[in-house]
Write a protein that binds this DNA or RNA. Structure first.
Length: 512
RNA sequence: GUCCCUAUCGUCUAGCGGUCCAGGACACCGCCCUUUCACGGCGGCGACACGGGUUCGAGUCCCGUUAGGGACGCCA
């Protein structure tokens, strides 16, 4: 029996200063995938030590986003502000060991030194002793506020083997005595992050590439404390179309925005997983479920180069996921959207505004209609636009199409004759779909096939191709030249409404 | 400016010294299926940033150049 103790423990540690960004979501995802693949544990830690910028609202939104993506913590969520005792304890330990010290150097002096160094093209690394004269002692005696700095070694180098980037080495003379606690005593990121990772037993740290330069500082703290350092895996950045780091400027970047756009969480996860990572198969189906991704995932196949977020590909992938979603699930997702757009109470759509085939139950009808749109969508929000004519008769007809398809009186006459034929043969087509054992959608298919055959032979007998009859009818029924399959539209609209719409269109076009 | 990192089709990527006149996916363009749109199928367009090495042989290793990104906080 494998021991949970030798399994990886990973965490996602967002700071609640705004909504969950897709870049952060991708970091959370990779941690989660690694934990799932290895049978390890995935934790969530809210890094809210920056009281100025952290908000409860952001915390709530981040958790909501993670829940939606299915990336929730295996253990209760940790909040850094509730761990202050631990931070204090370690801070004193470093102070007692002489690996940290109080620094009274005023901010303006610091700024001047930084500016000076930059002008000379040098690295600014603050060192203990740079401000320790009389003034410093006086301030200390007066109990002035001071920051606490980590006492960093000055010679040699820190190195670590990044699981993605390989060996990274940084000279120690580029790292100064960095601040680990503010003037008010509250601890800072580079410190709390390390302490919490030690305390929570984190074995692998997977985070954005922008943290590479923090890593060497953090390793120094691990070493000062004699703690085992975790393995690091840095993820390449996600870029916008302009190749700049993805930000609000690039439009939708918040995870919840994608939900509003009608993106499926599984599609976003799938898309994000493939940004900077690819399975080992040379050729593979890019459309994958979470389980398929987990099974293939490994850190050593993560790319080093940054990736541009391709919105078009996300849309394509979302369409693929919509088509893979089981009927019932899709119905549950789409029905509220249709209801919102076309009205109707909790009991169903208002029968006075939605005229439909009375032979079908509410459920059969909605399932059927949603099924007609499914392969035509890229987002959940597309359903309404494709199916609108089922919920209300066309208010006007595509002008160019009217001119082309119904521009002559004889064409309008032919449309009227077509309506009559549909009306006359409706029930005959129905008899072929009579088998009560047939599922509703199969019955619909049979009726459609029968009706198509009927209309085909009728129009061919009159010297017309099927399309000559079908296209004007599509226009009459939907107001457009593009729609789901015509006979299915007729079937779900029902006999009365189909005939009514065709006549209404003929009247409207001929101006009487 | 300094430090770190990166560099294959427009985009996401496969490639871990010969099997690559570079493979797949999105997008785009044709054709097929077809009553329209879509789905699906088939085909096309399209890349190893540049220059030096190393090697019998380099997209693959090394060094430069160039370009891009990140970090240089009492933010995380």
């Amino acid at each position: 029996m494998p021991d949970k103790n030798d399994k990886p423990r990973v965490r996602f540690a967002p700071s609640p200063t705004g909504f969950l960004h897709v870049g952060s979501a991708r970091t959370a995802l990779f941690n989660w995938l690694y934990a799932c693949h290895t049978g390890g544990t995935y934790l969530l830690r809210i890094e809210d030590t920056d009281l100025e910028r952290s908000t409860e609202d952001a915390t709530r939104q981040i958790i909501e986003s993670l829940e939606w993506l299915g990336l929730m913590s295996d253990e209760p969520i940790e909040y850094q502000t509730r761990r202050a005792g631990i931070h204090r304890e370690y801070l004193h330990r470093l102070l007692d060991m002489g690996r940290a010290y109080r620094c009274y150097c005023p901010k303006d002096k610091l700024d001047a030194m930084r500016e000076d160094a930059r002008r000379k093209g040098a690295i600014f690394a603050y060192r203990r002793g740079m401000f320790s004269g009389e003034e410093s002692s006086r301030m200390e005696a007066a109990g002035a506020p001071c920051v606490i700095r980590f006492c960093a070694p000055e010679e040699g180098a820190v190195a670590f083997d990044d699981l993605v980037y390989g060996r990274i080495e940084v000279r120690l003379d580029t790292i100064g005595d960095f601040v680990i606690a503010r003037g008010d005593g509250s601890p800072l990121y580079n410190f709390t992050n390390v302490i919490d990772d030690i305390d929570m037993g984190i074995t692998h740290i997977c985070r954005g590439e922008d943290h590479i330069s923090n890593t060497s500082k953090q390793i120094l703290i691990y070493e000062a404390l004699g703690a085992a350092r975790p393995r690091f895996a840095h993820l390449p950045m996600i870029l916008g179309a302009d190749k700049q780091k993805l930000s609000k400027r690039h439009g939708a970047t918040g995870v919840m925005r994608f939900r509003e756009m009608g993106i499926l969480p599984g599609a976003l996860v799938n898309f994000l997983a493939l940004l900077g990572w690819a399975p080992s198969e040379a050729e593979f189906n890019e459309v994958m479920s979470m389980d398929e991704i987990i099974a293939r995932f490994s850190l050593d196949r993560i790319n080093k180069s940054p990736a541009v977020f391709d919105h078009e590909k996300l849309m394509w992938m979302n369409g693929m996921h919509i088509r893979r979603t089981p009927k019932e699930r899709l119905h549950a997702l789409v029905e509220p959207l249709l209801r919102e757009q076309f009205g109707g109470g909790p009991e169903g759509f208002d029968p006075h505004t939605v005229v439909r085939n009375p032979a079908l139950s509410d459920g059969e009808w909605l399932d059927g209609v949603i099924g007609l749109a499914t392969e035509r969508t890229r987002t959940l929000n597309d359903f309404g636009g494709i199916l609108d004519f089922f919920f209300r008769a066309p208010a006007r007809y595509d002008e160019k199409a009217v001119k082309k398809l119904l521009g002559a009186p004889e064409k309008v006459e032919f449309l009227r004759a077509t309506a009559k034929h549909i009306d006359d043969s409706w029930d005959r087509a129905l008899s072929s779909a009579h088998d009560p054992k047939l599922e509703s959608s199969a019955a619909a298919d049979q009726w459609c096939a029968a009706m198509e055959e009927s209309l085909r032979s009728w129009s061919e007998a009159g010297g017309h191709k099927l399309g000559a009859a079908a296209q004007p009818m599509r226009l009459a029924l939907t107001g457009r030249t593009a729609s789901p399959p015509l006979f299915h539209c007729m079937w779900y609209l029902g006999r009365t409404e189909t005939v009514r719409r065709i006549e209404a269109c003929a009247r409207s076009v001929s101006g009487d």
